[in-house]
């Protein structure tokens, strides 16, 4: 890495370190399907959009990946699990849907009904 990038990285480390120290309680989990089917349907762009939205709005959530779960025709699939609530699966997710899923569901707990393709009990 160039010196300038290293400086920027160190500054970012301090910032994120402070945020981690003040964080409390269980975090929301966001899980993106990243099997061959998910990747071919656009899951990488959805993942990138999720990371950018979380970084931009300073929202703490755990982003995970999973392989093919057998609903290939509904990929890209994104699961949101809020602590103590049931898992909601969104299907055919595009980067344009990401601000809604994060703003409505991850932050405020309101499920984005028109994108739901599954609910686990």
């Amino acid at each position: 890495m160039t010196l300038k990038s290293l400086d920027d990285l160190r500054r970012l480390r301090e910032e994120v370190q402070k945020e981690i120290e003040t964080r409390q309680g269980a975090e929301v989990q966001i899980i993106v399907g990243m099997g061959t089917c998910g990747i071919a349907a656009g899951a990488r762009e959805v993942m990138t959009a999720i990371l950018e939205e979380l970084a931009r709005r300073n929202i703490k959530a755990t982003v995970l990946q999973t392989g093919c779960i057998g609903m290939c025709e509904k990929e890209p699939l994104v699961d949101v699990v809020r602590p103590g609530e049931k898992r909601i699966t969104y299907g055919h997710v595009t980067p344009r849907d990401v601000p809604r899923i994060i703003g409505e569901h991850v932050v405020n707990g309101r499920i984005v009904e028109d994108l739901v393709v599954g609910r686990a009990n």
């Binding site: 290293l6 990285l9 970012l12 480390r13 994120v16 370190q17 990138t48 999720i50 990371l51």
Partner: peptide, 17 residues
């Protein structure tokens, strides 16, 4: 360089991209 800060923090990944 990150020490205890995980590389998969969204801010770190956005920076790396």
């Amino acid at each position: 360089e990150l020490g205890g800060v995980p590389i998969n923090d969204p801010k770190v990944l956005t920076f790396l991209k």
